[in-house]
């Protein structure tokens, strides 16, 4: 017993030190992961997309509602915009004609995405260098074969040059992701051709979108060119509204008929029995009246 008390006192006296130490310790900050992407879509709209995430148990977790600053230029940086991340940790900014961009001698732009950090999160940044590429795509029927031709040129030192040796992906956008049709390597003239499959379903009218894309190209970023046309098979999917089945809202007809016939038969007989009861009652009353008269 004594031993126990001494032990307890010992523990209790040491405990405050431990607690103090824990409080004194600095809370470890999150190291965020910043990415920056350049997107140029089919309408030549340019978008800077930056993400802010961190890694926990090998899972990527977005940081929401964070302000990120976007800059252009290398030595002398100029602020383009401040954006706030959404619930997926993504923030986007569209580059318009009003946006002042600083290009280097070769005509490339440098973009920087910077997060300043706060009490619990460290600062972080990401930088990309982008050359403006011009991607062209033409879709033609060659002897009934659906043929895709792509051509890409880059402005370098004020001159237009073919983007030889680069890879362009031909994709078809689907509900959740893009379906890869083929991967083309551009030849010396900056062009390439591919055959489009003949058995790919489109929508109800057979329309689908063909998308040519530089995907995460280290020099060009993400650059897209797309066109929607009737190159797919028509898919007609409709469930008739008055569809009768076991698992729909309305029952098969035979079921309704059988049930009605059975129920009418049975309840008809019940009615007969009920009427019989009433007849007995009426008969009894009549008899009573007759007796009364006599």
């Amino acid at each position: 017993m004594r031993k126990k008390i001494i032990y307890a006192i010992l523990v209790l006296s040491v405990l405050p030190f431990f607690t103090l130490r824990t409080f004194g310790q600095e809370v470890t900050k999150i190291t965020p992961y910043v990415t920056l992407q350049y997107l140029k879509n089919s309408e030549s709209k340019r978008i800077l997309q930056t993400t802010l995430t961190y890694s926990k148990n090998r899972m990527e977790i977005p940081l929401q509602g964070m302000e990120i600053s976007l800059f252009t230029g290398t030595e002398k940086k100029e602020t383009i915009a401040h954006v706030v991340t959404d619930n997926k940790g993504i923030a986007k900014f569209e580059i318009t004609g009003d946006t002042k961009l600083i290009s280097d001698k070769s005509g490339a732009w440098t973009f920087t995405s910077e997060y300043n950090g706060n009490d619990s999160i460290d600062a972080g940044k990401s930088e990309i260098v982008i050359k403006d590429v011009n991607l062209e795509m033409s879709l033609t029927l060659v002897d009934t074969i659906k043929t895709i031709t792509v051509k890409a040129t880059v402005m370098e030192n004020g001159k237009e040059k073919p983007a030889a040796g680069e890879v362009v992906k031909i994709l078809v956008p689907r509900m959740f992701s893009n379906l890869l049709i083929s991967e083309l390597t551009l030849d010396d003239s900056g062009s390439a051709t591919a055959e489009f499959p003949s058995d790919l379903p489109g929508n109800k009218e057979g329309n689908l979108t063909v998308l040519a894309k530089f995907e995460e190209n280290p020099v060009f970023g993400n650059v897209e060119k797309s066109e929607t046309l009737k190159w797919g098979l028509t898919t007609d999917y409709s469930v008739p509204k008055s569809h009768r089945a076991l698992w729909t809202k309305t029952a098969p007809k035979w079921m309704i008929y059988t049930l009605s016939v059975l129920l009418t038969g049975v309840w008809g007989h019940y009615l007969f029995a009920l009427i019989s009861l009433i007849r007995i009652n009426i008969n009894a009353k009549r008899k009573a009246r007759e007796e009364y008269k006599i």
Binding site: Q64, M66, E67, V84, S120, I121
Partner: peptide, 26 residues
Amino acid sequence: KGNEAKAKSGKLVKLLSPEGKLVEVD
């Protein structure tokens, strides 16, 4: 509407994120 962020109030509020971390949000 990429420029939208500029139109915000600018007042930052501290909040507990779903992961249990303190974050600042406009």
